[in-house]
């Protein structure tokens, strides 16, 4: 199914979860803030929140240093 992630269309498997999307982009889940269909997700929801056809996802990723 198709989703939109950070403004770009992506194809993901039916039933894919946020955690699957993060793996695809090779992102460490703990360093990413996820907005899915205008909802900011809790960290514990990344593993269970399922994407839907047409889901709009924003991933805000942080790198170390300060």
């Amino acid at each position: 199914m198709k989703i939109v992630c950070n403004g770009t269309e992506h194809q993901v498997a039916a039933g894919a979860k946020i955690v699957d999307l993060l793996k695809e982009f090779d992102l460490a889940a703990d360093t990413v803030v996820v907005e899915c269909d205008t909802l900011i997700l809790k960290r514990e929801d990344y593993d269970r929140h399922e994407l839907r056809e047409g889901s709009v996802v924003e991933l805000i990723r942080f790198v170390g240093g300060g």
């Binding site: 703990d30 803030v33 170390g64």
Partner: peptide, 15 residues
């Protein structure tokens, strides 16, 4: 400094 805390803090602000 820690990217995990950076993400956690932004979530805290947004929620």
């Amino acid at each position: 400094d820690d990217p995990v805390m950076k993400a956690a803090a932004l979530r805290a602000r947004l929620q």
